[in-house]
């Protein structure tokens, strides 16, 4: 009933965890049946380990939070050595979120991941600055987005999901660039850029000045973008942004998402993903649908 397909990837249910909000899976083993999740999208991996930004890195805002973690991660080698075996043993479906500051870095990580078993798909975080192009984010320029997606496409036969940045004028343009580049699916949205100021210190709260806004506060924006992108591309869309209840998840599916990712909600309710899976199933039963696929994009009719 809950089975969905994302390109060649078949998932038992449409509920995944969003990159950077679920660690490498093990962090949630006391709370969630992690092998039952549709998939676990792990914290973004770069080629070499990255230390991340100086503190403070997070601050709560109205119904949301800002983060400037700075993509701290263990790097691809340590991910494969230290993190992947656990997920493989637990029979989890693993989607590796990758990031780089050049097309070459994205390709090198992909090549390394190709050699490993137990990876179901790659998610490309293109919200990162392209160092060789003056630090403009790959995901804010459609030709750069096309370039990185098509180069990574050449490197792998694994399903390729491209994660879109909402910090653009027209997100459908980026989605089309990803589709043209050979993506099997797009996921959206990444965080919205924002900031907060400490009025006592009279300085930005985050050491990095700006950070990414996530949580319930961004849900209406994310939902609108998913709606638009679902119209603009033929490949499956994965909805992300503020999903905190099963009702939120249903909204995204009705807007055209084939699957969803839960992010910030994991922080305040570590069991939320299990609850959303159950909630979606109950909703389908109550409304007499035999498959979740029947309601994908239904709000458009």
């Amino acid at each position: 009933m809950l089975k969905v397909r994302i390109g060649s990837l078949s998932l038992p249910n449409p509920v995944m965890t969003a990159s950077g909000t679920f660690g490498y899976g093990k962090e949630y083993e006391d709370f969630v049946n992690i092998h039952k999740l549709g998939a676990i999208v792990v914290k973004g991996i770069s080629f070499d380990p990255r230390p991340g930004n100086p503190p403070p890195r997070i601050v709560e805002t109205a119904c949301g939070m800002l983060n400037a973690i700075g993509l701290q991660n263990v790097g691809v080698e340590r991910f494969i050595e230290e993190k992947l075996p656990y997920l493989r043993n637990m029979n989890c479906r693993v989607i590796v979120n990758i990031l780089g500051d050049s097309v070459e870095e994205y390709c090198a990580i992909t090549q390394r991941l190709n050699e490993e078993k137990g990876i179901q798909a790659i998610e490309l975080n293109i919200s990162c600055p392209n160092v060789k192009k003056g630090g403009v984010a790959f995901g804010t320029n459609s030709s750069m987005a096309h370039e990185v997606v098509s180069q990574v496409r050449k490197e792998t036969s694994l399903p390729l999901i491209v994660k879109l940045s909402p910090n653009v004028t027209d997100i459908t343009e980026m989605a089309k660039a990803a589709e043209d580049g050979g993506a099997d699916a797009v996921s959206l949205i990444n965080t919205l850029i924002g900031m907060a100021i400490d009025i006592h210190k009279k300085k930005p709260v985050l050491a990095n000045t700006i950070g990414g806004l996530s949580g319930p506060a961004i849900k209406p924006v994310a939902l609108r973008m998913v709606w638009q992108v679902a119209d603009a591309v033929k490949i499956p869309v994965i909805g992300i942004g503020g999903i905190s209840t099963w009702q939120d998840a249903i909204e995204f599916i009705l807007a055209g998402a084939s699957a969803i990712q839960v992010g910030t909600a994991n922080f305040f309710n570590p069991r939320i993903t299990d609850e959303i899976i159950i909630g979606i199933e109950d909703y389908l039963k109550k409304n007499k649908y035999s498959s979740v696929r029947e309601i994908i994009g239904l709000a458009k009719n």
């Binding site: 679920f22 660690g23 962090e27 949630y28 890195r57 997070i58 983060n67 994991n266």
Partner: peptide, 8 residues
Amino acid sequence: ACGIGACL
């Protein structure tokens, strides 16, 4: 945010 080592 999380208290369990997930958000960094």
